[in-house]
Design a protein around this nucleic acid. Structure first.
Lengths: 208, 208
DNA sequence: CCAAATTTGACACATAGTGCCAAATTGTCA
DNA sequence: TGACAATTTGGCACTATGTGTCAAATTTGG
């Protein structure tokens, strides 16, 4: 039974995560050593590094899941959907996905507020989002105009759009967490409306 | 003579920088320890940390200077200039500033290519740029509409614009380095033209 | 040239992260 | 069920980053 082992691994992974977050909330991220987490979780220090490559990965499991969810959407993208339509749908889908674990996110981001190391990690996550958008849009624009490789014009358009979407969604995630009762999906719609004028016509033709 | 000391400090700073970059180019960033740099530069390891907070700061002195140049522009911003006009002018100014040390930049970025640690640092730098733009634009939009604090609408608009500008300029910096003989300023103009439709009307009224 | 202030060097130390191998645990098959 | 194989875990050693501390060296100012 291979999946039994897999479930056990997922279990310890969750346990380490829960223990770590608890300690971070209690003593702060910086003054919690990996050894602390290890002893509290009842595993060896080495094991922590096996499950999470680095200490700073631990508080970013949820954001990482969101990005993977998006990448999954890109994989399963239906044929004949325009770049414009797909991006709008995907961004909204991710917003819905994020809203699922609202409570957990609020706690996590509260713990991590204003920590230099984590700000850096946040920046990296933003860049990864931007890269994901940028690559998707750039290749799509190239395809839509029948060129194998994206031209520098395509690259520019894609980078602009990716930056705007990333910047907008990052911002509203912040205000969403800050103002309880607000709807992330609604705010996301507003962002997409604002981004609208940036889309070139080529993005609205269906691919394949 | 206070400035004599300052000049000496700037001197050793430059020496450490030059030595470090040379070593990075020769042996790679990762396999160059801070001790290596220290002995090669003829100072103690501790001194390196005094001049540059961390090892990863060293290859980012130029980008840091560019950001500081921009911050300087914001400080000396002339009265009665609209947000839109100022941002366009400032972004172009920075592009000119960057183009000054083109050769040095090319070498630096070549050395640092595809290093995980440095990719992270690059992400942080991008975020800092975005924050600089975002804050500037958000407060300006609020002022232009007579509200003391930026509304969430202002914040969204600002985040979008900041993201687009950052994403666009980052992208063209990349292609500029990759294609010798190209003009960063020209490309920057193209980015600004593309961003154009994102600006709300409020950004075009003069402040103060 | 001397005294005060500041910079530098040297040492110690905590922690992150990695390689390695033996021990324990788990899945598989007879 | 029991033994064998595969994988996971723990423990240990080690390197490197980054920080605190204080004495020694250097520079500034008179």
């Amino acid at each position: 039974m291979k999946d039994l082992r897999a479930r056990r691994e997922a279990q310890t992974r969750r346990e380490i995560y829960a223990t770590a977050m608890q300690l971070f909330a209690a003593k702060g991220y910086e003054s919690t050593t990996v050894s602390d987490i290890a002893t509290a979780a009842g595993v060896s220090r080495r094991t922590i590094y096996r499950y999470f490559g680095t200490k700073v990965e631990i508080p970013f499991v949820l954001p990482e899941q969101w990005l993977e969810h998006f990448r999954g959407l890109v994989e399963e993208r239906p044929d004949g959907m325009s770049c414009y339509d797909f991006c709008n749908a995907a961004v909204l889908d991710v917003a819905r996905f994020i809203e699922l674990d609202a409570a957990e996110v609020a706690l996590a981001f509260q713990v991590l507020a204003d920590l230099p190391v984590l700000l850096v990690r946040h920046a990296l996550k933003n860049r990864q989002w931007m890269e994901a958008y940028r690559q998707l849009i750039a290749t799509d624009l190239a395809k839509a105009e029948g060129s194998a490789e994206p031209t520098s014009q395509h690259q520019r358009d894609a980078a602009l759009l990716a930056g705007a979407i990333m910047g907008g969604t990052d911002q509203i995630t912040f205000t969403w967490l800050a103002t309880p009762g607000s709807s992330l999906v609604e705010q996301t719609r507003a962002v997409l409306r604002n981004v609208e004028p940036l889309w070139p016509d080529a993005a609205k033709v269906s691919i394949e």
